[in-house]
Design a protein around this nucleic acid. Sequence first.
RNA 1: GUCCCCAUCGUCUAGAGGCCUAGGACACCAGGUUUUCAUCCUGGUAACCGGGGUUCGAAUCCCCGUGGGGACGCCA
Length: 524
Amino acid sequence: MDFRARFAPSPTGQVHIGNIRTAIFNWLEARHNKGTFLLRIEDTDLERSTQDAINKLMECMQWLGMDYDEEPMYQTAQGEKHKASAQKLLENKEAYLLDPSAEKSPVVFKFPYKCDDFKFIRQCGAAELALAPDSKVSFNQTGITFFTVTSKGKVVDNTQTLAGFKDLEIVDADGNTLYKLDDAGYDALSDDPAQKVEIEHAAKLKFQRREVFYQDLVKGELAKPIDSMKDFIIVRTDGSPVFHLANVYDDIEQRVTHIVRGDDHVENTYKHLFLFKSLGYPEPSYAHLPMIVNQQGKPYSKRDGDAFVGDFRAKGFLAQALFNYLALLGWSPGDDREKLNREELIEAFSLERALRSPAQMDMKKLTNLNGQYIAELPHEEYMKYVMDFLPAEFAGSPKLDAVAKLMHSRVKTFADVAGWSYFFVGTDALEYDPKGVQKFLSGDTFRKPLEELSAKIAASDGSASAVEEAIHAVEEANGIKQGHLNQPLRVAVTGTTVGAGMSETVEVLGKEETCARIARALSL
RNA sequence: GUCCCCAUCGUCUAGAGGCCUAGGACACCAGGUUUUCAUCCUGGUAACCGGGGUUCGAAUCCCCGUGGGGACGCCA
């Protein structure tokens, strides 16, 4: 079967982790099924959609290697078609005007009262609804309004679609039938919201309950009774199409067969199923992904300042690492593999294995995975990233290549590269970690050994092995425990307490520079 | 308020009634390798939300409770 999936973001802000995870699952599912992956920009919210957001979105897609197969569709370009389809629904009496007397009125989609033969509708048997005592019920084709009492005794009004109340019977407190509705009676009802049938002194609603149901690819069977649903607006007063109409219409036009989207859309699905039917197309398969929550356990929202995809790039994460990590949020291949490349992910992916519960983002695990990916980067490629993150003034340094090699195994994110500057700055510009100085250079304990060491290094060829030998010799001559001269030397030479192998560090730095730094450190 | 969904170590997860003394990964702790740090290796701490059922047997199936989340727009 032809498999077509789509990612349909609204460009109203930066793409965050939750959005892009949805895109990844769509992409993976499409590629796994050798199907088609489409992009649609849902920019109908003119107030908030921006070109900048669209650009950023495209950048993210490209960065993460998610290619799409056809020209992206821009929803605003579809406006006329959306309006035409709404007009057709109006003509077919499948929609009505909210305010027919006004010059301009929103168009409302009317859930069909006669829907028993729909694939996604099933009967739930007789149902009853207790009303507020002696209250009024008003209805016509545009809906039914009635009053109920909450558990706290408060009277509230409810307006629902009439389609939810098949074979409606209104009875009074004594059980007498006040009104009975059948199919013919329904046809006689007005679809002008101002002309409603009103029944007084009602006590109870009796009806046949029906529900919408469908098989969600990740959540299993989902259902909702129609009597809890309301007709909904599909065209605004200003004539612009609303999300529901635009979304469904475009899915039809793009011939989408599988809709994979966020959890927050499950309720919309019950509406969209009817829209597909009314527009004359078979319903697609649906899969609803649970949310991704932040460190506080709250779902990422558009207002969330953190977790923008572009920020991860700027923080030195590799696209393949983020892609891998995100694919594993709410999905697993079923075996113990965690580090999977693109091909392996495509091969192993299936929506059936997607989890139903929300997942929390763990930066530490992402960082670790990123480090693994960096570790196996070939040197040339690794250097490209290094250059992107290295302060510009050090870019031309002859030491750069040696420094980068030396530090490769310890880079977790390329942001770490900024911490290499002690290799490049001049002796006088070196900054010292006060704690390290306090611990290793205060007092005279290491003064003499460091002076001796400096002399030995100056006299040597400056190679790592020579430096190592020198350190050894000085330690022995001064009764210092083996290895204990390393940290004082490190602080003196690098200003920090952590770094790469000491003798290699000196070799890369050069013996003249090393000696100059020791001299300066001892004069502090 | 109404409706809906979810629930295994701190976190991501494995688990389709007996392979579970609940496995893996991150993080954490300890030890080893490394003259330091990192890498790497070894080991360890740590979970089935609670209560009832069903069953010879439940993390797994059912019910109730609790907790968390979502949806109820002329936003998408």
